[in-house]
Amino acid sequence: MKFIPIFLIVSIILNFNLLKADEIKTENKIAKNLRCLICQGQSVYDSDSEFAISLKLVIKNKIQQGLSEEQIYSFLKMKYGEWILYDPVFNRNTYFLWLLPILIFLAGGAIIIKRFYNKK
């Protein structure tokens, strides 16, 4: 009984032959990680504004010129500033952003463990 859904899912999955278009994938990935600066809260990938369409072309050209993902990010950061990157860089300005949630998580764990000690 249990195996029916499994078989179903496996057979579905096996039917997906993903295209190996790595370039398109990286292109989309980069565009998704960039803020469309002239739109309100949309990524470059999602936006259809003139700015976003041109920027997508630039990304494509840069990839074809052989630039890596990181190089493209730093190129755009140089041109437009950190505001364009959706993935905030880990630096002095963002220590708290990255570490505070983790600290909260650890503190939560500590509180739970302490509770049990007290109970015992």
Partner: peptide
């Protein structure tokens, strides 16, 4: 033509 050179300038649009 395709707006790519304006990106090099760091431009936003027209």
């Amino acid at each position: 033509k395709d707006g790519t050179a304006s990106i090099e300038w760091g431009a936003y649009g027209v």
